[in-house]
């Protein structure tokens, strides 16, 4: 286990760095990244080996959050199980479905494939942080309400966060362009047509709110 990975805090979390980060932590590579260990639940018992946690500070939804993380802990685990932000969903555990997408410095990332300790000093935004403090929905969330987008909605936060990130780079997309932009997310209800309509409405709402 080295200090190197945590100190580097790479700007873009590549798959390679993710794997490297997991390997250097020296715990079972195949599964440990998405398994949940909470030290607070150990009731004072001895741990079974060098699984250390370290207190770090993460900027999540505009707040500085102090949290104990393992080296091999994914951002999705930290968000869901330590910060209580369960709007971020796990659908596949490893970068296939996009349900866990969050924004890191405004760029959509699969949080199941980002190590929590690598996002220190960066801004993490989840579905819970989109609406204003007064409860006003983000224009993209409002677009989903307007068009009754999604069915079971398990994929919804991933799609919305991806769309919010994509629209920052292309605020006025065609349906085709937006479909490409959100294609890293999987909807198993296969409600793609209505999702696209809802997110297009979200884009329109965003443009209008900026004009206003």
């Amino acid at each position: 286990m080295t200090e190197k990975t945590s100190n580097d805090a790479p700007k873009a979390v590549s798959r390679r760095n993710f794997i490297k980060g997991v390997i250097t932590s020296g715990v079972a590579v195949s599964s440990a990244g998405y398994l949940f260990r909470a030290s607070t639940l150990l009731h004072g018992q001895q741990l079974t080996g060098g699984v250390g946690e370290r207190l770090i500070t993460l900027n999540v939804n505009g707040q500085q959050r102090r949290v104990d993380v393992m080296k091999q802990e994914t951002l999705a685990s930290t968000l869901r199980y330590k910060l209580g932000l369960t709007g971020t969903k796990l659908g596949c555990d490893r970068a296939e479905c996009g349900s866990c997408t969050v924004l890191i410095d405004d760029i959509p990332h699969y949080s199941c494939s980002v190590l929590a300790h690598t996002v220190r000093g960066r801004k993490v935004m989840t579905i819970e942080g989109l609406a204003s403090a007064d409860g006003t929905l983000h224009p993209v969330q409002q677009g989903v309400i307007d068009e009754q987008g999604f069915q079971c909605a398990f994929c919804m936060s991933g799609f919305i966060m991806t769309a919010v990130g994509y629209l920052k780079t292309n605020p006025n997309p065609t349906r085709r362009e937006l479909a490409n932009g959100i294609s890293g997310c999987l909807c198993r209800c296969q409600d793609y047509d209505k999702i696209l309509t809802a997110l297009m409405r979200g884009a329109e709402n965003s443009r209008r709110s900026k004009l206003g």
Partner: peptide, 9 residues
Amino acid sequence: LYAKVTGQA
């Protein structure tokens, strides 16, 4: 839908 869209569901 509101609960779904805000991640509270």
